[in-house]
């Protein structure tokens, strides 16, 4: 009997190993999937929980099964905190004001859109020049552009803060040394100009965050478009500008869209600079989210709802650009 099983076991061994491998494969696959998706799922169902359920132990896992989902949190997103600790008082409900969420969201959209358009345009032009023209010190310039990405942002935070605080005063100080009256008067007039709490300042900053990325990515793409395309067009009597406009840009447009996803995400997600520079005006959503965390009691349901609303565009973008993303996150180091 024992010998018998022994024999069948040995003969089945390759099969058993095969099944064990399959099992391990699917187990790891499902575990990875669950680990990746769980925090997102948790955020989503938290945003649908009634206030009493959010801090419940044991926590509830399934909407409709464990609890009745509600959209209250999503309504709360657009309203200011209730005054005082006494929640759920009907008369307070009427007096609650609109929260900063709509404003900050609009700011996020404006800043991200302008940043993306400008960064992609400027970066694409520079990348074209790097790809097609003989430029003195090209390698140095490209490294210079890349090196601006290596900096820990906090290191430049201090001087950027100083520079944005009173750029007018800085220029004025320099201009006062010039003994010509109208130049000095001009200096006086721009003295109070500040880039803090303004759309312009933060947008310029985000463009510089996005530019190195666009230049490197787009240069990679342009290198893949054969030079001969434009050369043939120029032989046919087009100027180079026409050749770029009519032949190169249509070729490069999908790449520009893919690249822009990264600029969008950088600008959309940025937190420290906007927190420090735009505290009072032109603030985006991440600092707002941080501020509703507040002290002590955190309204997790409302925070979750805000997060979900803010993340939806990113998840859509990720889905649309999924085939280009890997190349993007590695700065073009991985080619498709």
């Amino acid at each position: 009997m024992t010998t018998n099983t022994q024999i069948t076991r040995t003969s089945n061994l390759p099969k058993i190993i095969h099944y064990a491998k399959e099992f391990l494969f699917w187990f790891v696959l499902i575990a990875t999937f669950l680990f990746s998706i769980f925090p997102l799922y948790w955020m989503f169902i938290t945003s649908l929980k009634p206030r009493t359920d959010v801090e419940m132990t044991p926590p509830t896992f399934m909407p409709f099964v464990d609890y009745q989902p509600t959209l209250d949190n999503y309504v709360d997103v657009f309203l200011k905190d209730r005054a005082g600790a006494g929640f759920a008082e009907a008369d307070q409900e009427a007096t609650r004001k609109i929260s900063e969420f709509p404003t900050t969201l609009t700011n996020s959209v404006i800043i991200t859109t302008v940043t993306t358009i400008l960064a992609v345009l400027m970066g694409t032009l520079a990348a074209y020049a790097f790809s097609r023209f003989q430029i003195k010190g090209e390698a140095d310039m490209r490294f210079f552009i890349l090196s601006t990405r290596m900096l820990p942002p906090v290191v430049v935070l201090i001087p950027v803060f100083l520079m944005f605080n009173q750029p007018g005063e800085l220029v004025n100080n320099a201009l006062q040394n010039i003994p010509i009256s109208f130049i000095q008067a001009f200096g006086e007039s721009i003295k109070d100009f500040s880039l803090r709490n303004s759309y312009i300042g933060i947008t310029l900053l985000y463009i510089t965050f996005g530019l190195p990325f666009v230049v490197w990515m787009m240069k990679g793409f342009f290198d893949e478009i054969p030079k001969e395309y434009e050369e043939a067009a120029m032989m046919d009597g087009y100027s180079r500008l026409e050749a770029i406009w009519k032949i190169v840009l249509p070729e490069a447009f999908p790449a520009m869209l893919a690249t822009s996803v990264f600029v969008v995400i950088t600008a959309w997600n940025e937190f420290v600079f906007v927190l420090l520079l735009n505290r009072d005006n032109a603030t985006t959503v991440p600092p707002f989210l941080f501020s509703i965390l507040g002290y002590g009691q955190v309204e997790w349901g409302r925070t979750a709802a805000t997060s979900v609303l803010f993340l939806i565009p990113i998840i859509v973008f990720t889905f649309l650009a999924r085939n280009h993303l890997l190349r993007g996150v590695t700065f073009g180091a991985v080619r498709r």
């Binding site: 990746s36 995400i265 997600n269 941080f290």
Partner: peptide, 9 residues
């Protein structure tokens, strides 16, 4: 998705 999300969130 995770690496695209807002770090604050």
């Amino acid at each position: 998705i995770p690496m695209m999300l807002t770090p604050v969130i």
